[in-house]
Design a protein around this nucleic acid. Structure first.
Lengths: 336, 336
DNA sequence: TATCGTCGTGAAAAGGTTTTCTTCCTGTCG
DNA sequence: CGACAGGAAGAAAACCTTTTCACGACGATA
């Protein structure tokens, strides 16, 4: 049904090879023939079959982007940033959502490889759980970790210095609340590399005595609901700390809502911080102090790493670490 | 490099055809051969080349999903719902983001078609602007409009009854604010079909005298920033209405923030409604009264329509209209 | 003028599958 | 005991491009 190269060749009365050459501009061809080909192609509404092209060229100009959860605005933002960067290098982006599900992630990522993508950018769902799937795929296709990474997989990584981010938060808290403020961490179980890094950084800071937290961290998921739930438990137990350090903005937003419902005033009664600086952080009441991840730089770095990997596969994997930035808003604006 | 069907055939000492048959289970083959093939395939780590398969079969089992903006949580949710439904029919979903950009949308959607997707679900950026691209693609590939639609394009459509949604809102306002309350619409320019439908429904309700709104609607974009800006202007002009009817939740969230910053109390001083019921609507202060779109039903309907279209192409296009639901929260909880 | 190099074009192979068609073998029925 | 039906496996075509290779013509140089 759809016109093929052959149809164009027939109509323009040239060979298939010539049509291909005209349309791809690979070699010089007689201008007269060229224009004949072009009009023929236009008249037929010819469109190259990308499957056939990919098969022949062994290259599709597609890169896949796998995120753990589109519904998380941080990843939605990341997707957008990455898409933008890849568009510039004339590549098609294939977005894929793992929905925080290991099986689905494996399916999705191997499927991408099977479809012959030239490279994959991946923020794995779990540091350990995603490792085998990631390793398998990385053996077939250039793969770069983005934001999160998987354990024991030799691959380039572009991520943000979580330790630095946590340090920025805690130093800020020490500043506004006084030395060694009592704090509590509400975050996600350290299944993914980012959650782990944040937990560890926080734990280390506690050991170093930067803040005071005798209680164990409250670990659930990176969701609004978990933020709500954690705060509900915390308030029910009584004796809340001076500051709530939330593992990401979603948790913080949930926490703020739960505190508000219970009549606990922020920042007067308790101070709250987030992590990521998603768009809604400014809308929270009060607006959320948080750590902004350099989305654009992250995307740029990851795509750069991937481009280089696709160009010359041999070189040893590199890890790029970007510095985040503290964004101070009203949720920590105590007046002492 | 990657092992091919040929390699498997060589190792199992059978023909290519047999390997293909075993791996696809299309015909009965001798169990002994079958197991030889299977072990050979396993040992080599064989993976079918989906490009080649698609080329030969003229079918890829992929459907594309094009949304106008992933960063809009409504569409993020829609993507998730659709993905889930399509996964069940053993299809791969290709997510694509048009970033509210007509050129990009055209590129993305034609690229999907070029890649041989079996069908496309699309929420077009603009009712008129997307029409030509949509029509072109619809001529090549089964296409179903989802949520939004494009003008004068013959295609199945699964959408939500916006008129009904607006009616629910306005009736509710009349109930809580008294008959013919003074209202003002803040929404997006009627570029896309949904924005237009909401505007028209509102305008009609004004004409019918359900609410009282002499001033022209404030039309910008479906964004938080526009909500903020519109309220800023509104307050600066003085004489705000009793109720703000926002075209979607993002606008409403922006409006709530702006009102809060200016010390205008919601719902006491002014009442605010949204549309979509995105996750963050419950987190707003106060929680937002809004119209919930039946995301799951929408996804189910759209995928059904697409499946049928892909099965028997001939039948005339159908339009399915789903009913939304009013979710009443504190932003309209006036006590009179 | 003869030869070499260059440039532009067509023929054909290759890329990896699926599927039709052919062939061969076995088993059954007449 | 022979012929035919039926099932299973292999050979080859087809899907649509790109790209290598070969070929012929032309211009330039010796």
């Amino acid at each position: 049904m759809a016109p093929t190269l052959r149809d164009v060749a027939l109509r323009a009365e040239v060979s298939l090879a010539t049509v291909s050459r005209v349309l791809n501009g690979s070699t010089r061809v007689d201008p007269a023939l060229a224009s004949r080909v072009r009009t023929a192609a236009d008249e037929l509404g010819y469109r190259a079959n990308l499957l056939a092209r990919g098969l022949r060229r062994q290259r599709t100009d597609i890169v896949g982007l796998v995120v753990p959860q589109v519904a998380n605005p941080f990843f939605a933002g990341l997707m957008q940033a990455v898409s933008r960067h890849l568009q510039q290098s004339a590549r098609t982006v294939l977005l894929a959502d793992a929905e925080e599900d290991l099986d689905l992630e494996r399916q999705v990522i191997t499927r991408l490889a099977d479809h012959g993508v030239d490279g994959i950018l991946c923020a794995p769902v779990s540091e350990r759980g995603s490792a085998v799937a990631a390793a398998e795929v990385a053996a077939r296709v250039p793969l770069v970790f983005l934001d999160r990474s998987a354990a024991d997989v030799e691959a380039d990584t572009a991520s943000v210095d979580q330790r630095c981010g946590i340090a920025l938060v805690l130093e800020h808290l020490a500043e506004v609340c006084g030395a060694r403020p009592s704090t509590r961490l509400i975050s996600a179980s350290p299944v993914d590399s980012v959650a782990r890094a944040r937990c560890e950084a926080y734990a280390d800071a506690v050991i170093e005595g930067l803040v005071d937290d005798a209680a164990p961290p409250l670990l659930g998921e990176f969701t609004v609901d978990w933020g709500r739930e954690a705060v509900a438990g915390l308030i029910a137990d009584g004796a809340p700390p001076q500051a709530l350090v939330c593992g990401n903005d979603l948790i913080a937003l949930g926490a703020l809502a739960a505190l508000g419902e219970r009549g606990v005033r922020v920042p007067d009664d308790i101070v709250v911080t987030g992590f990521d600086d998603v768009g809604f952080a400014t809308l929270a009441v009060p607006p959320l102090t948080t750590v902004r991840q350099p989305l654009d730089a992250l995307a740029a770095t990851a795509t750069d790493l991937l481009e280089q990997r696709m160009a010359n596969g041999g070189c040893p994997p590199r890890c790029e670490l970007l510095r985040p930035e503290l964004i101070i808003r009203a949720s920590t604006a105590v007046t002492r």
